[in-house]
Design a protein around this nucleic acid. Structure first.
Lengths: 348, 348
DNA sequence: TGTTAGCACTCAATTCTACCGAGTGCTAAC
DNA sequence: GTTAGCACTCGGTAGAATTGAGTGCTAACA
């Protein structure tokens, strides 16, 4: 995996007021038009009472300091990752529009179903709100206590182990015995499993029976199967919404392909989101996140907590020239509502 | 939904041998090169001892009869949907290559985990084998008998209803009571639910208790919740693999976007696959499947059965100029292996 | 010293033109 | 029925000319 450590976001020095204004104008304009921005455009749109020549000489400095770049000699300027970073760091928090606020409210007022369904639909919502691809991550239940476990017989050789965790998640594992098992034995094994496991977490050590009869063997197998899952953070879920937006956001077909290919690898996506969160960031721009194939992307994340501890995140993936203000506001609003949703009426 | 009935596939009349050869040559060449095919190319590649002029006059006929089309006057010919249809109908069954056969074998020899995992991974496999986007559909358990149902207390007001079906699937539904429920009451409700539901199918009528105590209310709610799911064919699962292949298969960014947008709507995909299967087809080309946005696509499907009755399908989605022979062979091989996998060692 | 008007210069993008050539349809001869 | 021959069509390409947005530099100005 071609990962590198995430760059310090605060490495952007401060710019004097006029340079900052010019940089901001360039970023805004470029986000709007997707075109290189010229000095005269900046002189016109920004409210600096300055001629284009002055803007030009400032731009030379900004370029030398790495905030702007020139695609070719006779073109305008384009923001670099560092330029976007400065812009984002100095962005005052945006607010979500009336209509969108309403849409979010309506959604959470009407959403039904299990956690998984809610997360999946939230992902679609976030994508619709922003026109970017959205990622919703629900963290695993590795640290949740087991509430109940049950062994169900499918046929003489096959049993299904169903486990319910305190966070409301349910897992199933099929077991294949090398001998025929009676219903009575399954019931007894189920009883013993409950006695052993209820209240424990997945990686806890439990005392399994050492006898060699059917029931004991079954119990041992069940516990082993269950514990084998613990390290893989089983239950970590990813919901990706609006992957078709990728085709809108990027122009090169090849770029689209690469981004889609990344999104297919859900583990990668989870670790990407997790990394960004671990660094305490809410936005990773261009090469900041260290994923080669995503250099032309920016990723916005907002954590979701349940009962105060982190238990997931919502994210947005767009081009580096994305509408940071709106997108960040939407992500924040949705993550807040999601947090509230799970803390509140519905139990997660 | 802009659906239309599927066209009869057998509406292609028969062509004389030479026309058939020419048509086939055009299709093969066009699939290979993505370019319009000229008469001289056909005269050269096909083993007809005929001049290009003869081919040309035959092509005029083929065009008049709707098998070929001309992008513009001075270009070669391109197959129409009808042309592809004839080609596919007269295609002798292809075989999968050595390496691919091996890859499939290895996959099914090593695949682990629950049905869902197997299906998801199968989808990825099929996509890798063919370089097309793959769809794996697992049909719901609406007709499966209930093996076990269990009510678990999350807290005083929230209970989780976990149901195991004979096909090995598990559902969960959370219930919210308007009153506090004790653990004893939950256990009793769970016991009663088992007595009521075990052995029934989802849409069966059962006699619920009419009393008004906590337990009876809980039981009623649980049954109602469960039965509310029956008509929605709950449990129908779609796994889409290799959506990034869409960006390779189609050139227009807009087409890519449209196809991705369709793939996002999983219900649509299921009904598409189902429709094609219902018509007894294994390939739907261009407008045959009646989905406007997918006119430039062909869809290949192959049914999967468990214990003899249909329980899913694998599918491939590519451009109309896809490699039918290879793709159909791969789909068939994978669906056969999948069928065997579920009938055999592992219980589904 | 910072700002600005003026100006020459650069270079991608656009337009125009000519032309090539793959491919066609037609016809006359075999 | 087949084919060689031929005039014709028209998309694609290559080159030249043009355009114009934008730059950097310089000299004058406040």
């Amino acid at each position: 995996m071609a990962r590198r450590s995430i760059r310090q976001p605060s490495s952007t020095d401060d710019l004097d007021a006029r340079k900052a204004t010019i940089l901001e104008a360039v970023v805004r304009e470029h986000i709007d038009t997707a075109q290189p921005v010229g000095s005269s455009a900046v002189a016109a749109t920004s409210h600096l009472a300055v001629s284009s020549a002055t803007v030009r000489s400032e731009m030379v400095t900004l370029e030398r300091e790495g905030y702007l770049a020139q695609p070719h000699t006779s073109a305008g300027r384009v923001p670099t990752d560092k330029g976007y970073r400065y812009f984002v760091d100095h962005l005052q928090a945006g607010v979500v529009g009336e209509a969108q606020q309403q849409q979010i409210k309506d959604f959470f007022a009407n959403v039904r179903g299990e956690v998984e369904d809610v997360l999946a639909q939230t992902s679609t919502l976030l994508s619709q709100l922003t026109s970017y691809t959205s990622v919703v991550v629900g963290t695993g239940h590795a640290q949740s206590a087991i509430l109940s476990t049950q062994l169900v017989s499918l046929d003489a050789r096959h049993q299904l182990l169903v486990t319910v965790f305190a966070d409301g998640s349910v897992t199933k594992h099929s077991l294949l015995s090398s001998f025929d098992v009676s219903h009575v034995e399954v019931a007894e094994a189920s009883r013993q499993l409950n006695a052993l496991l209820i209240g424990t977490v997945l990686d806890a050590r439990v005392q399994v029976p050492s006898r060699n009869d059917h029931v004991a063997t079954l119990v041992r197998e069940a516990v082993a199967t269950l514990h084998a899952q613990a390290p893989t953070l089983d239950g970590e879920q990813v919901f990706i919404g609006g992957s078709s937006k990728v085709a809108e956001a990027f122009d090169g077909v090849e770029t689209v392909r690469q981004v889609l290919a990344i999104l297919e690898q859900e583990l990668l996506v989870v670790s990407l989101v997790q990394d960004i969160l671990d660094q305490g960031l809410s936005v990773a721009i261009g090469s900041e996140h260290g994923f080669e194939p995503l250099v032309s992307c920016a990723v916005i994340v907002a954590p979701v907590t349940i009962d105060g501890h982190p238990s997931g995140a919502v994210g947005l993936l767009g081009p580096t020239r994305m509408k940071y203000s709106e997108a960040m506001a939407a992500a924040r609003a949705v993550s807040a509502q999601l947090t509230q949703h799970f803390d509140g009426d519905d139990r997660a």
